[in-house]
Design a protein around this nucleic acid. Structure first.
Lengths: 341, 341
DNA sequence: TTGAAAGCGATACCAA
DNA sequence: TTGGTATCGCTTTCAA
């Protein structure tokens, strides 16, 4: 409580001197694994308390070559999907004695690169990464334990936690087909990563299996943004032959679609059927609630953190093949799809 | 590119050896402030590139006694208000060459305490803190540059970035009064912090000035949760003499109220007038849009980061009195308040 | 302009 | 059970 009056930081030396022991002994009680006599331990503990001494984790990290820090790198920090992943990771990390640095790359490859070059490679024990880069080379250069989340790059050399995008999109589209829809549109974005691509191919496969031919004029590709959802929904719904169903391939696109439908004074589940990918607040709120492909967002962060920490603690031997953990998605049917037959 | 084959990390020594210079010289080109001849600089740079050498910021931090790391400590990481603050801070920090550790205390005093004791006091240059503790003592014990955001504790000894909660609530309530409302309810939570208290007193003041007497049965105190908003709105709206207007004193309470109104099949702005505190997605979406007291969330993080970094860089002399920066709020009138007279 | 060497604050090995 | 000391990878005087 009555900390030193001087501004100088208290170090292990000060404690040792005060306690009339060597720094080695103080270090021992700090770490608690070597044995120290009860008497000296108590004495040292008391002095630590009195001096308000806090050991420098940095100095310790330097010799231990372990920082007990994780990094979570995300493309942006506003999207609830990413904050959910962050939340899951932070929670596990804290439980396991790790701190977490959160870095937003703003979806910018250059920024992402700078972070890795300047910092991450040396100062964290491991990385949970929702990457922005598209080429495997970038990922292979990362020498730290790393878990790729959501966006997986083959040949990256790292483990991944993903969801079954293909199946999610497939189930959604099949649901439309089962309910008799034929003019089924999809609004997505570039197919830079596996996730976007898989969703499209899941959609496509369900169409074909249902005896339908995917029509290019019902496939709208933007940049995965809310405004794309809005704009394309506007286009589609005001076309000569509008679709009867729209599959919104991510959460923000879905929000855009909902807004467009509202602005056109149409009724979801009546005038237009809709399925979104991933939960979003609006989808839960509108009447009827929007059917979505739900994915375990927070759980992805939890999984990633667990795998990462195990990897950090584990033998470096275990460098088997990178493994992908694929979490399951679930089609939550809430009534935004009209039965046509 | 062709990094060392051995697993050993490359250090400044390796670079020095390769370049036939001393480590001091390498350090000089790394930091760029001392003069080094052009020839040797180029030679060293080339070797750094070849060896793929990345200096250990930890070792540097140890001697410089500066980590270039900030911590943002928040009660939870799901609430969009907090992620907005984090986002603002992270952005400024990155621009200024700082990294950011994000820590969620889960609104738990013990967790908060542990973080400070075990880590923060030594390893970050400064802290942006949305605190959970209620007593000034806890804050006074923090010896690092710290900016308190949103929740301010007097006598804490730190600067703060807040908003004018009092005025926000006052304006909202006055708006109700001006439109002829007399039975005006408020749903809030405990008055542990200045923010909650101020909002209540702003409400109260506007009531009194309007010649109205705050009626305890129209003051519902929960725990600032969405479910409180829902539950209390249900109660209020089904009472014998329901209020004509509700002031929802934070963003999640407002969401709960909106849901309750919907579930009762009532019409916002018609059957019940509503004003929320702070933006929230639902409020923007329902028809009519809900009038809210808007606060500059991201801007709070930006401000805090700027003040913090200035403090870190500045003279330790400048320990004037702690200063509070109070950002302005604005009543955004969107039509959820009915004119009664 | 460059080099030698003394730290920074811990840990860990080897002796005692 | 304890102490002495080399060490981690870098920065920063002080000399050359």
């Amino acid at each position: 409580m009555d900390a030193a009056v001087t501004n100088k930081e208290i170090t292990i030396k000060d404690v040792a001197k005060q306690a009339n022991v060597s720094v080695a002994t103080v270090s021992r009680v700090l770490n608690g694994r070597d044995r120290v006599s009860d008497a000296t331990r108590k004495k040292i503990l008391k002095i630590i308390e009195e001096l308000n001494f806090v050991p420098s984790t940095m100095a310790a990290s330097m010799v231990k070559k372990k920082t007990n820090m994780l990094a979570v790198v995300v493309p942006e920090i506003q999207n609830p999907f990413y904050t959910a992943v962050i939340g899951g990771t932070v929670e596990i990390a804290n439980n396991e004695g790790f701190f977490t640095i959160v870095i937003s790359t703003n979806g910018n490859e250059t920024e992402e690169e700078e972070f890795f070059e300047s910092f991450l490679s040396k100062n964290v024990d491991g990385i949970v990464l929702i990457g922005t880069h598209r080429e495997a080379g970038f990922y292979r250069n990362i020498r730290k334990p790393t878990i790729l989340v959501d966006r997986y790059i083959n040949d990256s050399g790292h483990d991944g936690v993903l969801i079954d995008n293909y199946r999610g999109a497939y189930e959604a589209t099949k649901h439309f087909v089962d309910y008799g829809h034929e003019r089924i549109a999809i609004i997505d974005g570039e197919h830079d990563f596996n996730d976007g691509k898989d969703r499209y191919w899941g959609y496509r496969q369900a169409m074909l299996e249902g005896g339908l031919t995917p029509d290019p004029k019902y496939h709208k590709q933007g940049k995965w943004l809310e405004e794309d959802g809005y704009r394309f929904a506007m286009e589609l719904l005001q076309a000569e032959q509008p679709p009867t169903a729209i599959f919104a391939a991510n959460n923000v696109i879905c929000k855009g679609v909902i807004r467009a439908v509202r602005d056109l004074n149409l009724q979801i589940g009546e005038d237009i059927s809709l399925i979104g990918f991933d939960e979003n607040e609006l989808a839960q709120f509108v009447q009827p609630r929007v059917t979505v492909v739900a994915r375990p967002t927070r759980e992805m962060g939890v999984q990633a953190a667990e795998m990462l920490i195990q990897k950090i603690k584990g033998e470096p031997k275990e460098q088997a093949k990178p493994k992908k953990v694929i979490l399951d998605v679930e089609l939550m049917k809430y009534g935004s799809v009209k039965k046509l037959k």
